[in-house]
């Protein structure tokens, strides 16, 4: 019976999919978002689901900073996402740092794989600095980034290292943890 239901729904899915394919091919447009567009939206969403301690801001009106270290894979997507947005009344800004030497304090840091060689040093530097570190590769060293983007079956999933988050003094909402893979430093993932 379950199989029969599955068949019916797959047939409907098939028809719907074929229609969409025909529609999309006929317009010959880029019909799916870019990977980094979705990742940019994720970075923005993190501002809602993570609590930064008050002392991570210099003053009451200092901005909330999303940093990108290394080559910027987002193009204009990240700027598009944060344009006009505020986090708890603070303006949201994007900063780009070419190398580790250029790094300034920020609340979220996306570490691009172009600076992969420096990732362990970067994570060590930031470990207790209230920075939500995000990568889309496995850092490979002793320390993990707090959030790692995983590509699974064309979709982007999150792996959250709660030990690293605790070390950074950040609290992550269960709303973000629930749909994600949660690991600790000792648990292999």
């Amino acid at each position: 019976m379950a199989v029969l239901t599955a068949t019916t729904s797959s047939v409907w899915g098939l028809i719907r999919r074929l229609t969409l394919i025909l529609l999309a091919v006929s317009t010959l447009g880029a019909t799916a978002p870019q990977e980094y567009q979705v990742k940019a939206v994720f970075l923005f969403n993190f501002t809602h689901f993570v609590d930064w301690p008050a002392d991570s801001f210099e003053s009451a009106d200092s901005p909330f900073v999303i940093g990108v270290l290394g080559q910027d894979p987002f193009g204009s997507a990240l700027d598009d996402v944060v344009r006009g947005e505020r986090v708890n009344g603070r303006p949201l800004v994007v900063q780009r740092y070419e190398t580790l030497a250029d790094l300034k304090p920020c609340h979220i840091l996306f570490i691009d794989r172009s600076v992969r060689g420096d990732v362990t040093r970067t994570l060590d530097t930031l470990a207790s600095r209230h920075t939500l570190t995000v990568t889309d590769f496995e850092p490979g060293g002793a320390r993990n980034s707090i959030i790692r983007f995983l590509n699974e079956d064309k979709k982007i999933r999150l792996r959250i290292n709660v030990d690293s988050a605790r070390e950074a003094g950040l609290t992550i909402s269960s709303k973000l943890l629930r749909p994600s893979q949660v690991v600790g430093n000792r648990g292999a993932g």
Partner: peptide
Amino acid sequence: LKQLSVEELMNVEVYS
């Protein structure tokens, strides 16, 4: 994309 919940965002298909 910004309208979507985290769960929904995780189900958006992207170019691979």
